[in-house]
């Protein structure tokens, strides 16, 4: 455990609370992609399957896993019930089947081992790297976002970005290297680069998030 990883995980946790707070304060899920949320639920359910048998890993890991699964399921539940009037299937249209199919293909081609758990783990890593695309696509179509939504996206993107120095740290200091997670994590962070740039140049300077 190192500082980068802790900060990354906290950023991940904070992002979920910002999203719930956004829905509560605006009484709406406008601007949030249901498709991205469903992809994240798939990511957590396939990666964190091991909560049922690895009680010994750490209480920290197990509790975080449970929180991620339950809070994302709760977010989806809220979006499909309480806040469903703000859902806009006309805007949230990214072809998610390609993302699931691509992640599935990579998982079957390059798992660390051919076991159900390892293939699903690899699938979850690749799927996570692109799960934000429906959300970013939606943002591009609307051309603007509420400030609280941009904070959510920043915290979510910062989580994987902070894992990169964590992986470097572990590689140099612990001799631990996980090529699948590292390559996918770098791709994931690159997908956020435009967003990070606009967040930095506009939102952090008090302006509204608008695409040029």
């Amino acid at each position: 455990m190192n500082l980068f990883r802790i900060l990354g995980d906290l950023s991940h946790l904070v992002s979920i609370f910002i999203l719930l707070q956004k829905m509560r304060s605006t009484r709406s899920c406008a601007g949030i992609s249901l498709r991205t949320q469903i992809l994240y639920l798939m990511v957590y359910c396939t990666r964190y399957l091991d909560i049922f048998w690895t009680f010994n890993a750490s209480l920290y890991n197990s509790s975080m896993k449970l929180v991620f699964i339950l809070s994302t399921a709760y977010t989806i539940y809220l979006m499909r019930t309480v806040y469903k009037t703000a859902l806009d299937p006309q805007i949230d249209t990214f072809a998610t089947y390609y993302l699931v199919g691509g992640a599935g293909l990579l998982a079957v081609l390059f798992p660390y081992k051919y076991t159900v758990y390892e293939v699903l783990w690899s699938f979850s890593i690749w799927l996570e790297s692109v799960a934000i695309l429906p959300q970013l696509f939606m943002l591009q179509r609307t051309g603007e976002a509420e400030t609280i939504t941009t904070h959510y996206l920043f915290a979510l993107g910062a989580y994987r970005a902070l894992y990169i120095p964590n992986w470097l740290y572990r590689w140099f200091l612990e001799g631990h290297f996980d090529p699948i997670a590292t390559v996918a994590g770098i791709i994931q962070t690159l997908l956020y680069s435009d967003f990070f740039y606009i967040y930095y140049t506009k939102v952090l300077k008090g302006k509204k998030f608008e695409l040029p």
């Binding site: 991940h12 990666r47 690895t54 890993a57 890991n61 975080m64 896993k65 991620f68 783990w121 997670a181």
Partner: peptide, 10 residues
């Protein structure tokens, strides 16, 4: 050679 431990990150 030490066997690779399971996935220990989130």
């Amino acid at each position: 050679v030490e066997e690779k431990k399971g996935h220990d990150e989130l």
